[in-house]
Simulated assay, not measured.
Amino acid sequence: MLATFLIGLREGLEAALVVGILVAYLTRVGRRDVLPRLWAGVGLAVALAVVIGAVLTFGAYALTFEAQEIIGGTLSLVAVAMVTWMIFWMQRTARTLKSSLEGGLDRALAVGGLWGIVLIGFVSVAREGVETTLLLWSMVQSFGDAPAALVGALLGLGVAVLLGWLLARGMLRLDLRVFFGWTGAFLVIVAAGVLAYAIHDLQEAGVLPGPFTAAAPIDPATGAVAIGWAAFPFGWAFDVSAVITPGSPLAAVLQATVGFMPRMSWLQVVAWTLYVGIVGTLFIRGQRRPQPARAPEALVREAPVPTASQQGAA
């Protein structure tokens, strides 16, 4: 629940901030009449995420074990790619997010088309929605405890909506750079764990060489797949199942927070290490980059923009 709660909180707050910016701007320029179109786009984005989750969950029942593992591993890789992109996208565009969203609304309002506002609402939420769905689905497959994982995600999304509303009303001040910095670092570790599990799935399906294939080195003393340095690169890197029971609360916490599993192959360990080393280093460098004095643009309550009639009267 902790891991999926933080994921739901992070991704939900991103979406809530974006929607809050759009709603605040439309209200400020006196165009509340198009808010239903914006909410329609948001609703379509949420529906898309739910449909994708349902298809992934129920569609897998008709597949063979190998097909399920291949699809699960592939979608986990897609989730890792999306999460990685979103981490750096938010880090790079947080300072100009508000102005770019408002510029898109200005262009849509100038054209006057119905679908322009709907599309802005849809695109603004769909990215986080699809990304969250893929990431949560991958983690549920990894944990094997769907109820707890989904409850954690829903709680995170609920808190995100509440925080977004408080920010929009000016009732809460939040250093978004610090928030997205810490949650971004957490997502780097989570994504590394999802990557490791994706490799596990693909090894089980025989797509990648590993302990489940003929490429696995065999320990001559036991006749089982070798463990340790002698098993490199296609055997088990370690096996501490006797100390940390797979499926136990401790194993679940370790897997949810740092991507650790009681038994991991060398390909999993290498992939996890390279991802954290490369992506983590780039993320830290981005955080240390000099920033302007003001906080990232978010939900800022501004003075109303004068209407044309008010300007003429003046």
Rank of each mutant, 00 (worst) to 15 (best):
F5D: 05
L6Q: 10
G12T: 04
L13Q: 09
Y25P: 04
V29N: 00
R31Y: 00
D33A: 04
V34R: 01
W39S: 05
A40H: 00
A40D: 00
G41W: 01
G41K: 01
V46N: 02
V46T: 01
A47L: 03
V50D: 01
A54K: 03
G72V: 02
G72T: 04
L75G: 10
M82D: 11
M82K: 09
F88R: 14
W89Q: 13
M90Y: 14
M90I: 11
Q91R: 15
A94L: 13
T96L: 07
K98S: 10
L101I: 03
E102N: 07
G104V: 02
L109H: 05
G113P: 05
L114W: 08
L119R: 06
V125I: 05
W137M: 03
W137P: 03
V140W: 01
S142C: 04
P147I: 02
V151I: 14
A160P: 09
R177K: 12
R177F: 14
V178K: 10
G181W: 09
G181E: 06
G181H: 09
W182G: 02
A185W: 08
A185P: 07
I189V: 15
V190A: 11
A191N: 12
A196F: 13
A196M: 12
D201V: 05
D201W: 11
G206H: 14
G206C: 13
V207W: 15
P209N: 15
T213F: 08
T213G: 10
I218G: 09
P220E: 13
F232Q: 07
P233A: 14
P233Q: 09
F238K: 08
A242V: 06
V243Y: 13
I244K: 00
T245F: 06
T245H: 10
G247R: 11
S248R: 08
A252P: 07
Q255I: 12
T257C: 03
M261F: 14
S265H: 06
W266P: 02
L267K: 12
V269H: 00
V269Y: 00
A271C: 03
W272K: 06
V276R: 04
G277C: 02
T281R: 08
L282E: 10
I284F: 13
Q287L: 09
P292C: 02
P292N: 02
A295P: 12
A295I: 11
E297I: 13
R301T: 09
P304T: 02
V305R: 09
T307P: 01
A308N: 07
Q310Y: 03
Q311D: 13
A314M: 13
